[in-house]
């Protein structure tokens, strides 16, 4: 057992697990626990199957760059959709344009149809996020473990990181349930757009400043941009009077 390898893998895979947890919580807040957990479980089964089938060969066979770009693009689609709706609603612009009757009708249609849509969205989001981060953890464990000849230490480091992040996820469950729905969707939109930008950028060859730290910078930038857009969209005094 090598403590240095355990700590190195713990730190490196911990970052990936935190990213997976963020995506999982985002999926849960939109579609509920069930589809988010199913997406995670199916992704974990797929990861286990990949490792069982390819072992060390996965390092050479898997096109991680293309995979990152695709998952990033999918998250960008979801994230921008939610972010746009959240900006429109919080600025009051959505309610201004929709007549009351149409709005009610749409709401009823959404209520009957969204069960399926949000379930699929939550499943796909959790699945993509966990699969991508899981593959990155496998890469970390295999490269650090294999290079040092200490695979068991590397696996232990990743396992400890997984347990620590999972416990943090359980503790975060209650505070998140108190956040208002539209605010939560705004946060989810920002998170998914930021992660999507980061992963897609990595996939197409962007060298991010300070690597994963850039995700935090992107979250702040998207939050500021959406706040500015909300302010810009807010009805002017003469519109309110009319």
């Amino acid at each position: 057992m090598n403590v240095v390898v355990v700590l190195a893998v713990f730190a490196a895979s911990g970052v990936e697990f935190v990213e997976a947890l963020t995506i999982f919580l985002a999926a849960r807040s939109v579609g509920g626990w069930r589809p988010a957990i199913w997406g995670t479980v199916v992704a974990l089964v797929a990861l286990a199957a990949l490792v069982a089938a390819f072992g060390y060969a996965i390092l050479a066979l898997f096109p991680i760059g293309i995979f990152r770009a695709l998952v990033g693009l999918i998250l960008l689609f979801f994230g921008l959709k939610w972010l746009r709706k959240a900006v429109l609603r919080s600025s009051g612009r959505k309610a201004l344009h929709d007549e009351a009757l149409i709005y009610e009708r749409e709401l009823q249609q959404l209520r009957s149809a969204t069960g399926q849509n949000t379930d699929s969205l939550a499943f796909a989001t959790a699945f993509n996020g966990v699969l991508l981060e899981g593959i990155e953890v496998i890469f970390i464990v295999l490269t650090l473990g294999a290079n040092a000849g200490l695979l068991q230490s590397a696996i232990l480091g990743a396992a400890i990181a997984f347990v620590v992040v999972a416990v943090a996820g359980v503790l975060l469950r209650t505070p998140l349930s108190r956040v208002p729905e539209n605010t939560l969707k705004w946060i989810v939109g920002i998170m998914l757009t930021a992660f999507g930008t980061f992963w897609a950028g990595e996939g197409i060859g962007v060298h991010w400043w300070q690597q994963d730290v850039s995700i935090i910078v992107l979250i702040v930038l998207y939050a500021l941009a959406s706040l500015a857009l909300r302010r810009w969209l807010a009805p002017r005094p003469q519109e309110r009077a009319a």
């Binding site: 344009h97 757009t193 060859g205 998207y222 857009l229 969209l233």
Partner: peptide, 29 residues
């Protein structure tokens, strides 16, 4: 080219897409 500014450009282009999608809502007011 390999520069960290490409990340900034990517953010700016995606934020621009978001702005353009909301522009109609602003103009149609």
């Amino acid at each position: 080219t390999q520069t960290a500014w490409l990340g900034v450009l990517l953010f700016a282009l995606i934020a621009l897409a978001l702005y353009l999608s909301l522009r109609r809502e602003h103009k149609g007011a």
